[in-house]
Nucleic acid binder design. Structure first.
Lengths: 182, 182
DNA sequence: GTCTATAGGAAGATAGAC
DNA sequence: GTCTATCTTCCTATAGAC
């Protein structure tokens, strides 16, 4: 096998950046070529089913990084408070303090093909389930609802950040994310 | 002036639906023609600067409907509790109980041209300011933050609804929206 | 595995008749 | 104000050499 000019991880990173900035339909193959440093024929060699495959690869890579930064700390050993704290730190890091949009939300917002939409639901479910389990350990009532509400607060704050330019709401949402339920 | 085949309001409504479903880049002129019932030359007659103008018209129409349903009740006379209640009712109606995505969020998520993005910030600011004023009347501390957080909760719940298909989080976010601050 | 070159079609936008 | 017809550009995807 001939060595790849660009490592798979670097390609995936570049695809995530491009799709996050322009959306699925807004990102043209030409843009993905510029982002990855590969010509279109090379991209199609790696992703034979075309743009949908490129979006799926980006989604998988983004979900993997998110899982490592945010979900894994929730699933790790330790007391609930410190697991929430480590997960919140992962959130700040992953979204660069609110300056980065969520690829899931961008794809969910519109126009992504069916297989991509399926991946979104799975990634959200994994986060919600892990957070629900931690909140249940704290003895919170309706931990599933509380988990969904905290996740919604984070996503909503990212919408505001993109709409208004201010990341203050994101910082508050993450702070609330690491607190124990009342 | 020759009578229009399709009323301006009907055209605006159709544009909102199409853009909300497919996003800015995902909605082709062809799709907008099917949605409005007009041929492309007729659309360009009404919107001489092309697709960007069509998106701006959709945004203005959506913001107008949102202002009437959600923001005006906040700015009306009456005690804070009933203004919040009427605004929350407008939210449920406007987003069809969480089943409809927010055009602002769809455009904000990605790929909308600069003039459209400016309109988004203005619409969000109007909502936030009106909500802040009502919350300040209730004597809440940091009413501006509280307003932003409530708005973020609604938008986040709409992201979840689109990603997971469940509108439960939206219903909770709106219920919290109409409550007085603690 | 990556490239140049290009097919084939859909995209945004316009001309000019009615 | 709306239409048919069309222009040009851009897009996704592929063929085939290296």
């Amino acid at each position: 096998m001939r060595p790849a000019k660009v490592a798979d991880e670097a390609v995936a990173d570049a695809l995530v950046s491009a799709f996050r900035r322009d959306g699925y339909a807004g990102a043209a193959i030409r843009d993905l070529c510029e982002a990855t440093g590969l010509k279109s024929a090379s991209l199609y060699h790696r992703f034979p089913r075309g743009k949908t495959d490129m979006a799926l690869a980006a989604l998988a890579w983004a979900a993997g990084g998110f899982g490592e930064a945010v979900v894994s700390p929730l699933e790790a050993a330790g007391d609930p408070a410190s697991r929430l704290r480590r997960s919140a730190a992962g959130l700040r890091r992953y979204y660069a303090g609110g300056r980065l949009a969520c690829l899931l939300a961008v794809f969910a917002a519109s126009e992504a093909p069916e297989p991509v939409r399926d991946g979104i639901a799975a990634a959200l479910a994994r986060w919600r389930d892990a957070l629900t389990a931690v909140l249940a350990e704290t003895g919170a009532g309706a931990p599933g609802d509380e988990a969904e509400d905290r996740i919604a607060a984070v996503h909503g704050s990212l919408v505001l950040a993109r709409g208004t330019g201010s990341t203050a709401a994101f910082r508050r949402a993450v702070s609330r994310m690491e607190g124990l339920p009342p």
